[in-house]
Design a protein around this nucleic acid. Structure first.
Lengths: 164, 164
DNA sequence: TTAATATAGTTGTAATTGCAACCATATTAA
DNA sequence: TTAATATGGTTGCAATTACAACTATATTAA
């Protein structure tokens, strides 16, 4: 009986809970801003013969951590951009000697990844370009107050269902 | 002489105009929210055996336009997601009969793309799932006022250097 | 102990992307 | 007119991605 009802219930759910216009507008703008910024950053990096942003993204987290480096899944959790194929992204970084994989003592399945001197050098070269683009395309458009306001709204949108 | 100075000038520029902490924080959150939402939407679509979001993105713009459809470059301008390889995305849509390419009268180089009945049907099937995910993962977290506030900040960040 | 299940990471493969080169038509300037 | 340049779109190709299947180790429960 419950089983019989379920498909209907699902359908009803699908008909409801659709977003308001205001919500959709924010959603659309979120995408437009994101896309524009990412395009600009990509362009700047390329124009300066720098590696793509996802390299920076990983290297930065490794640099932040320092010490014994990070497990791959930890990188995945922290990174800004999409985390699929991290394995192969790290392959590429390793091939360029920007990171090193070390066997992991506590857990024989995994490895610990550490940034190298060369990796840090890449961070140093990328940041001025990356940071400047953020500032020019984004920071300059908003006051510090507006940035904070934006952050708090975004944080709320993130939900951060602090179950962890 | 000017040529001699330029590299220095460029370097100086690179050292300056770096973003404030507040800016960076907003930047990071923007990415996190975007990534999370896109992941959720992708998941919902897949779980319901629906095509990827970029199909919807294109089909929606075509539907909005109606009439004689859109040129490919117009689609590129309107679409939410990244616009590279639009040509081949449209190939795929056309292969599924969701759109049709017609020769373009005013401009022999281009074509006009129109959504088909089947394409509209896809829109109808996708929206409930897409919309519901937007609402659940995003809309519900913010009040309508907050959404408006967010929109106006994002609009400002977009800059919209109304040169067009 | 063993079996069952979960987690970390890798790999095969097909689909998609990014990029640059390209073709065809438009537009501009002479 | 012609030549030069710009624009719209396609295509070839190498790199990257998504996804699923897989290996190996950990963890849990019996």
């Amino acid at each position: 009986m419950w089983l019989q009802l379920q498909p209907l219930a699902v359908n009803l759910l699908l008909m409801k809970n659709l977003p308001e216009k205001t919500t959709i507008q924010a959603w659309v703008l979120l995408h437009r801003v994101h896309r524009k910024l990412l395009e600009q950053v990509g362009l700047s990096l390329k124009n300066n013969d720098l590696p793509p942003l996802d390299w920076y993204d990983v290297l930065l987290e490794l640099h932040r951590e320092g010490g014994e480096g990070l497990r791959q899944y930890e990188i995945g959790e922290r990174v800004l951009l999409n985390k699929h194929n991290l394995s192969r992204l790290i392959d590429r970084l390793e091939k360029q000697q920007l990171v090193r994989r070390n066997a992991c003592e506590e857990d024989g399945r995994g490895n610990r990844i550490k940034i190298t001197k060369e990796g840090k050098e890449v961070l140093r070269r990328v940041w001025p370009v990356y940071g400047q683009t953020i500032q020019k395309e984004f920071g300059e458009k908003l006051s510090q107050n507006e940035c904070s306001e934006l952050s708090s709204l975004l944080e709320k949108a993130l939900g951060d269902d602090k179950s962890a």
